[in-house]
Simulated assay, not measured.
Amino acid sequence: MTTTRWLRRPQPRPAAAVRLFCLPHAGGSAGLYRSWAPLLPADVELLTVRLPGREDRLDEPLPADLPTLVAGLAAAVGPLLDRPWAVFGHSMGAAVGHELVLHLLRQGHRPPVHLFASAREAPQFHRVGTVHLQDDDALCAELARLGGTDAELLAIPEVRALVLPAVRGDYRLIETYPARPEGLLPCSVTALVGTEDEELTVEEAEGWKPWTAAGFDLLGFPGGHFYLSEGPAAVVAAVVERLRN
């Protein structure tokens, strides 16, 4: 396993035809994509993004805002764009991934072959929020409602102390994000949704279409906001199919 401060490469594949950068949800970690590496074919190399404030970056402060986060991540990703690349972002990670692609394009890097926006409304439907201002109990209730974190774990004080600072910080980043990206993407975009996700409407997911000058499609999978954890094989297969088209 190869690691850097920002990126983890679970199964290095130096001969891979394309690199796939995967970004987690608010409060999430690289573990969201733990099952993906063995499911991906040999010609796709997985790189998972590790954000400050969690895992072995626990003592690092979160950036002041989302553009600052993107700038730091772009510095780590830039040297790895010597071959075709794509981005998959889940929930908050989709917004970060979108801004990351635009940032790298402004720097003159080669465009990605695909952007996958998972469980995230398009920028024009972005909603500001106040979850990051609520107390710990309310924050835990929100995490349990979305289904991404075991409610029993959140009842353990030691777990709360480790998890909640990053969760609160990420919610602050996304809830204060101005969502005014500029420019059309030169790559295809796929929006992915859980068919039982109450956080996202079909209209909000289809709203990604006008953000690309290339192709667009919308995919639905059984499950809620964290549908990709319930059926990773089907999601990975759909991603690979689009990377090869």
Rank of each mutant, 00 (worst) to 15 (best):
T2G: 05
T4M: 06
L7N: 00
R8L: 01
R9F: 00
R9M: 04
P12W: 09
P12F: 07
R19A: 03
R19Y: 07
S29W: 01
G31V: 10
S35H: 10
S35Y: 00
P38M: 08
P38W: 11
L39H: 01
P41I: 09
V44S: 01
V49L: 09
R50D: 00
P52C: 10
G53Y: 07
G53I: 07
E55M: 09
D56P: 11
D56T: 13
D59F: 11
D59A: 14
D59L: 13
P61H: 12
P63I: 09
D65K: 01
D65S: 10
L69V: 10
A76E: 08
A76F: 07
V77C: 03
V77Q: 00
L81K: 01
P84I: 12
P84V: 12
W85S: 01
W85Q: 00
G89T: 02
A94F: 06
A95D: 02
L100H: 08
L100Q: 09
H103D: 15
L104T: 06
R106T: 15
Q107R: 14
H109L: 10
R110I: 09
R110V: 15
P111D: 11
H114E: 10
H114Y: 05
H114C: 06
F116T: 03
E121S: 14
P123E: 12
P123W: 07
Q124S: 14
F125I: 12
H126F: 11
R127Y: 08
R127I: 11
V128R: 14
T130L: 13
D136R: 06
D136T: 11
D137T: 14
L139Y: 03
C140K: 05
G148Q: 01
P157Y: 02
P157E: 06
R160Q: 14
L164R: 06
Y171H: 15
Y171L: 15
R172I: 11
I174R: 04
I174V: 15
T176A: 14
P178K: 15
R180S: 15
G183C: 12
S188Y: 00
V189T: 06
T190C: 08
A191P: 02
G194K: 00
T195D: 07
E196S: 04
E198Q: 10
L200S: 03
T201S: 15
T201G: 10
V202R: 14
V202W: 02
A205M: 08
A205T: 06
E206A: 14
A214N: 08
F216I: 09
L219G: 03
A233W: 01
V235I: 06
V236D: 01
A237Q: 05
A238P: 02
V239L: 02
V240Q: 02
E241M: 08
E241A: 15
R242H: 05
R242E: 01
R244G: 09
R244K: 09
N245A: 11
N245K: 13
